[in-house]
Design a protein around this nucleic acid. Structure first.
Length: 702
DNA sequence: TTTTGAAGTCTCTCC
DNA sequence: GACTTCAAAA
C-alpha cells in the first residue's frame, strides 16, 4: 500500500477494556481457578500452557500485578513479548491494576531488550556502543557484497543467491544445525559449495565487524555470549532482574531459551506462557521443543493448563478442535466454552477470486449495517499478496481498511533509498548504504561506486574522503550534487549537536528529498504514490528525538499496519482489518473471514512436500480460525488460473486441512452467479442451458 | 570499460 | 510485478 499519508499513532481501541481494571482485591474473582493459580504462583519456574482464547494475556497481566503487589520492584521485572506494543500494553494494564508504582516494569521483545543490554554492557565485551542495526534486507545485501567480494556469483550458474545464503546463515546461527546439514537437508543442489558458503559467512561476519554493524541474530547471540562467556558480565546482566516473564514461548528459538536460562540461573523465577498448537515461526528458528522440554530444563516446574476458552462460540471451537486434532500436539488441550449458542462456521465456495472478493465485501457491509464496527471484522490470508484483489475492491467501494503484516513499507525500494542517506550520515562506514546511494546517481554504476567506497575506506571514512574523491568524468555531476547534499546534512547535524537540539530527522529527510525526488521520478513507476510514502516517512521521523533512535526503532519495531503509518487527521477511526495469519496471532475479532482456503495457497504449495512444514501450515490455519468470537467464514475460489507459472495452472481444490471431519462441523454456502449468498440446499449450482465441453466431447463419441 | 535498458526468473510468514 | 542476468549503447 503506497497511497495515503501515514504516521505512527497508537489506536484508541488498543486501550484495555475498562471493566478489567478493577482493584487487585477482587483479583481472584476475575480469574478462573487455573488462571488464578498461575497468576498467584510464588517463586520458581512456571509453565502456563494456554490454548487459544483462554485468557493468557490476562493471566500474565495479573501475574505481573501480583508480583508488584507482593512488593517486587517494577524495574526488577522483565516481561518479554513478541512485539514491543504488546509489552507496553501489558505493562500499562498491570500497573493500572496495582495503582501507582514507582519505577517501570521492563518490557519488550527479545531483540529490543538485547539491543538495550548491548548498548549498556557491550563495550565491556568489545562491542562499541554506537553500533548500527541492520534489518533483514541490509543483512541480505551485505551477504551479497561478501559473495561478490570473494568472486562468487559470476562463473557458476547454480551458486546460491544472497537471500539463500542469508537464510542458511541465519538458520545455522539460530538452530546450530551445521551448515553442511542444512545444505544437505534442504538445499541438496548446493552441498558441493559447503566450503565456499562457509568462506562467505566468514567474510560476512568480518565485514559486519569492520563496519560496526549488528544483525538481528547478533542481538540475541551477543546477549547470550555475554551471559555464557563472562562470569562478571553474566552476574551484572542477570542481576538486573528478579523475575522474568515470557509470552508466546512456543515461538522462541534455542538461543532465546539459553538466554533465559542464563538470565535466571540464580533465582529460577521464570514464567512462560505459550501454546504448542500455535507454534508458527519455525522458519525463524523457533523450536517447539523449547516449550515441550521446559519442565526438563527447569526442574521443579509448575505446569498450569488453561482450557476454558472465553473467546469463541462452541460451534467455532468444534471446528478448530477438529482442525488441530490432526496435528501432532504434545500438550493436548480440549478447549471448551460456556458461551451457549452461535452459528456453525460457514464454508463458502466461490466461482473465482472476484466472486470471493465480492462476497467478503458484501458480507462485511451487511454486518456493518447491522451494527458490527468495521474494526471488529478481519480478513485473514496465508500471504500478504493474496489480498491484492480485495484491497482494490475495498478501495473502489470506499470501505476503509488497514492491512497488517506487511513490512512492505520499509522494504519498498524508495524508502530504503532515503534511509540509506540517513545511515551514511549516522555511520559513515556503512558501505551497504553507500553503495545503495551511489548506484542511484546517474553516471555512477557498479565499478564507480566500488571505487568511491574503496577510496573512502582508504581515508578512514572521514567525511572529506568522499568530498575529495576524484570521480571519472561521467560521474562528475552526480558526485558534485551528492557532495553538496552530504555537506549540508553533516553541517546541520553538527550544528544541532552543538546547540543540543535534536537532529531534526524530519528536516534531514526533507533535505535528502531535494536531491532524491527527481531521481525517484526517473527510476520508478507510480512516482506520486512513492512520493507520498516519503512524506509519511518524514512525518514518522519527526517523532523521534535523534536520528539514531529513529533508525534503531524502525529496524526493531517496524510499523505493524498501514494504519500505524496514517497521519493523524487522515486515519480512519473504524477500518476493516486485513492481516496475514501470522500477524493475526494473539488478536481477536467478532467476525473473521479466512480467504484463499485453497490447496497450494493454504497450505502453500512449497510447504506440502515436508510433513513438518505441513504441520506448521495446519497450526497456522488453526491460529487463523481461532481468532473470531462469533462468526467464521472460510472461503475458497474454484477455478484459480495461475498465470505466474507460465501456462494456465489450475489449482481448484479446497485446502486439505478442511477435510471431511472439519466440513461436517461447518455449514456450506455456494455463491450463486450474481454473487449473492445462497445456502447450498436452496440453490444448488444451476444446470447451464448448454454444456460446451459435453458438446465438444460428443463429437468424438457416439 | 561502464552504464543502462530489456528480457528472463521466481514470488511466504517476521524480529 | 520485483529482481537478476544479459546484451547493446555510450
Amino acid at each position: 500500500m503506497a497511497d495515503g499519508p501515514r504516521i505512527y499513532r497508537p489506536r484508541e481501541r488498543d486501550a484495555p477494556a475498562p471493566d478489567e481494571e478493577h482493584s487487585l482485591d477482587d483479583l481472584t474473582a476475575q480469574l478462573n481457578p487455573e488462571q488464578a493459580a498461575a497468576a498467584l504462583y510464588g517463586d520458581g519456574p512456571l509453565l502456563i500452557v494456554a490454548g487459544a482464547g483462554t485468557g493468557k494475556t490476562r493471566t500474565l497481566i495479573y501475574r505481573v500485578a501480583h508480583l508488584l503487589q507482593r512488593g517486587v520492584k517494577p524495574e526488577r521485572i522483565l516481561l518479554l513479548t513478541f512485539t514491543r506494543r504488546a509489552a507496553h500494553e501489558m505493562v500499562t494494564r498491570a500497573e493500572r491494576l496495582v495503582g501507582a508504582v514507582s519505577g517501570q516494569v521492563h518490557g519488550g521483545t527479545f531483540h529490543g531488550t538485547g539491543n538495550r543490554l548491548l548498548r549498556i554492557f557491550g563495550q565491556a565485551a568489545g562491542l562499541p556502543r554506537d553500533f548500527s542495526i541492520m534489518d533483514q534486507a541490509d543483512a541480505v545485501d551485505l551477504m551479497g557484497i561478501a559473495r561478490a567480494n570473494l568472486g562468487y556469483g559470476k562463473q557458476e550458474k547454480r551458486f546460491p543467491k544472497k537471500e539463500t545464503l542469508h537464510y542458511v546463515y541465519s538458520r545455522n546461527v539460530n538452530t546450530e544445525i551445521p551448515v553442511e546439514d542444512i545444505l544437505g537437508g534442504e538445499l541438496p543442489q548446493f552441498t558441493d559449495y559447503t566450503d565456499d558458503v562457509l568462506r562467505i559467512f566468514a567474510e560476512y561476519t568480518s565485514r559486519k565487524h569492520e563496519r560496526n554493524l549488528v544483525d538481528y541474530d547478533d542481538l540475541l547471540i551477543f546477549w547470550w555470549l555475554m551471559l555464557e562467556q563472562s562470569a562478571p558480565l553474566a552476574e551484572r546482566i542477570a542481576g538486573l532482574y528478579d523475575h522474568i516473564l515470557v509470552d508466546e514461548y512456543q515461538d522462541t528459538n534455542v538461543t532465546q531459551a539459553r538466554i533465559l536460562r542464563g538470565m535466571c540461573r540464580t533465582h529460577q523465577n521464570i514464567s512462560v506462557v505459550g501454546d504448542d498448537a500455535q507454534s508458527i515461526y519455525s522458519f525463524r528458528g523457533a523450536n517447539v521443543h523449547n516449550i515441550l522440554d521446559f519442565p526438563k530444563q527447569f526442574p521443579g516446574t509448575r505446569l498450569v493448563t488453561l482450557e476454558q476458552n472465553y473467546r469463541s462460540t462452541q460451534p467455532i471451537l468444534e471446528v478448530t478442535n477438529t482442525l488441530i486434532s490432526r496435528a501432532e500436539e504434545r500438550f493436548t488441550k480440549n478447549l471448551w466454552t460456556s458461551r451457549a449458542g452461535g452459528e456453525a462456521p460457514w464454508l463458502v465456495s466461490a466461482r473465482d477470486e472476484q466472486q470471493q472478493t465480492k462476497f467478503v465485501v458484501d458480507r462485511v457491509l451487511e454486518l456493518h449495517e447491522e451494527g458490527t464496527p468495521l474494526h471488529e471484522m478481519a480478513v485473514l490470508f496465508r500471504a500478504a499478496y493474496m489480498s491484492a484483489d480485495l484491497e482494490i475492491e475495498l478501495a473502489n467501494r470506499r470501505v476503509p481498511f488497514e492491512k497488517w503484516g506487511g513490512l512492505k513499507f520499509l522494504e519498498a525500494a524508495h524508502v530504503k533509498d532515503v534511509l540509506a542517506f540517513l545511515r551514511v550520515i549516522e555511520n559513515p562506514r556503512d558501505d551497504v548504504s553507500w553503495y545503495r546511494i551511489l548506484m542511484l546517481m546517474p553516471g555512477i554504476g557498479d565499478s564507480t561506486a566500488r571505487a568511491a567506497i574503496a577510496a573512502m575506506a582508504e581515508h578512514g571514512w572521514e567525511a572529506h574522503a568522499f568530498y575529495d574523491w576524484a570521480p571519472p568524468p561521467r560521474a562528475r555531476d552526480a558526485h558534485e550534487r551528492l557532495v553538496a547534499l552530504l555537506r549540508a546534512l553533516n553541517a546541520r547535524a553538527s550544528r544541532n549537536e552543538a546547540e543540543s537540539l535534536g537532529t531534526g530527522v524530519g528536516a534531514e529527510i526533507e533535505a535528502v528529498r531535494g536531491l532524491y525526488d527527481d531521481i525517484l521520478r526517473e527510476r520508478y513507476d507510480r512516482p506520486e504514490a512513492r512520493l507520498a510514502d516519503l512524506e509519511q516517512l518524514r512525518v514518522i521521523a519527526g517523532g523521534y528525538p535523534t536520528r539514531a533512535a529513529f533508525l534503531a526503532a524502525i529496524a526493531l519495531e517496524p510499523p505493524q499496519s498501514t494504519q500505524d503509518l496514517a497521519v493523524g487527521g487522515d486515519a480512519e477511526d473504524d477500518a476493516l482489518v486485513l492481516s496475514t495469519a501470522h500477524s493475526a496471532k494473539g488478536k481477536e475479532w467478532d467476525t473473521v473471514f479466512l480467504i484463499w482456503a485453497v490447496d497450494g495457497y493454504f497450505p502453500l504449495a512449497r510447504a506440502t512436500a515436508d510433513d513438518a512444514q505441513l504441520d506448521e501450515e495446519r497450526r497456522l490455519m488453526y491460529v487463523a480460525c481461532t481468532r473470531p468470537r462469533n462468526e467464521l467464514y472460510v472461503s475458497y475460489p474454484l477455478n484459480v488460473y495461475n498465470t505466474r507459472r507460465g501456462a494456465d495452472y489450475s489449482m481448484d481444490q479446497l485446502s486439505r486441512f478442511v477435510d471431511r471431519g472439519v466440513r461436517a462441523k461447518m455449514q456450506r454456502m455456494v455463491l450463486a452467479d450474481d454473487g449473492a449468498a445462497a445456502p447450498e440446499p436452496a440453490a444448488p449450482p444451476e444446470q447451464p442451458p448448454i454444456d460446451l465441453r459435453a458438446l465438444l466431447k460428443s463429437r468424438f463419441t457416439k
